[in-house]
Design a protein around this nucleic acid. Structure first.
Lengths: 195, 195
DNA sequence: GGTCGCTATATCGCCTCGATATATCGAACG
DNA sequence: CGTTCGATATATCGAGGCGATATAGCGACC
């Protein structure tokens, strides 16, 4: 997940670690902040895997500024991570946010697919929460309040996504030529079963 | 955080690991699910620190059922963790949820204090998000949509908390005798400066 | 001229997580 | 009767995330 964010920023311009940390805070609107303990090991991994290249020097001592740039392999990896299916862990919320922050690099068709997968995930979660609310075993008022709030928040999230999807589809239909449009609609209709 | 949840469940009755994992999913309404990779090491730590005690046996081979029970030290630790000040990390949301699931073990006065600290944290976050929204540098429509959604969600959370606090205060004022009430109000007014 | 705070890289230990290994048990099936 | 399946139950592995902290050059300010 942090790899996706790093690659997304390096796609715009080469940067050094410290700068990446700041930008990650600003670009993503404080929605997520990385720690050095995650950042530097990730840079090592990415370089090891050939997704980024470093060119050190420029500055003495602690002012070294090891500048990292994205490679072709990195560009490929970026697009792969951007479309990756949801992993359904507890970090999935953050993962989705980071992905959406770089949506502009995906074609409208793929954007809609990612958004719909996310919505499906939330609908599953909503069903689960509702089931728990129906369970008469949970009598603790605070636990019920938590669940009810989770229900409301999830419903709001779903409504927001539905709106986004609608807007995205409209852009898509205006932009795409007729042939493209029909093929894309078929894809959209098919996706529910395959996911 | 997982320690708090384990202690909270063991407070009600002794349990073995597998049972704990199930209960954590049910009791907390699917708001959080623990993995074995977190559960068993945590049980080891808690036992090492004397917060829980295990009494193995009962069953042959893999059906051992190592039953864990909370100790006096565990009860002390539980209350300490339950009131612990916010750490402001990315896991703070989950931490708050787990804490609130065991609110019944805290006196109303302390509950209000925890809720208000949480609200203050969210207000800080809201201010940050709003600042980012005001920044004209962020032109990406998806990033702006994310921030605006974060704003709305945070505002909804704050409103929810405000409501909870109001209800909690009312319960408090009805329950507490006059002397208690005055002392408690002073504590509440003082808290902003000390935190 | 001292010290405060920002820039910058790096590492430590602890914890979390998903996956997986291992093994027992009851029920279901033919 | 055997066997196969799924639930119960404990445990560990490697990869990775996180907060704290170390180190050190640097400009600004009084």
């Amino acid at each position: 997940m942090i790899e996706l964010a790093i690659l997304g920023l390096l796609k715009e311009q080469p940067m050094h670690g410290y700068q990446l940390k700041r930008e990650l805070g600003e670009q993503l609107g404080g929605l997520w902040r990385v720690s050095y303990g995650s950042l530097y090991p990730s840079l090592r991994r990415l370089e090891r895997d050939g997704a980024i290249s470093s060119q050190g020097a420029a500055g003495t001592g602690a002012r070294r500024k090891t500048v990292y740039a994205i490679t072709d392999e990195g560009e490929r990896l970026f697009l792969e991570l951007l479309q990756e299916p949801p992993q359904e862990g507890q970090t999935e919320d953050t993962r989705f946010r980071v992905r959406m922050a770089f949506f502009r690099y995906l074609p409208p068709e793929t954007r809609v697919r990612v958004l719909e997968r996310r919505r499906q995930g939330l609908q599953d979660r909503l069903a689960e929460v509702k089931m728990h609310l129906r369970d008469p075993g949970t009598t603790d008022s605070y636990q019920r309040a938590l669940m009810d709030h989770a229900r409301a928040a999830t419903e709001a999230d779903i409504a927001w996504l539905t709106d986004l999807i609608r807007v995205e589809r409209r852009t898509f239909e205006i932009t795409a030529p007729v042939g493209e449009q029909r093929r894309a609609s078929a894809t959209l209709r098919r996706k529910e079963r395959t996911g």
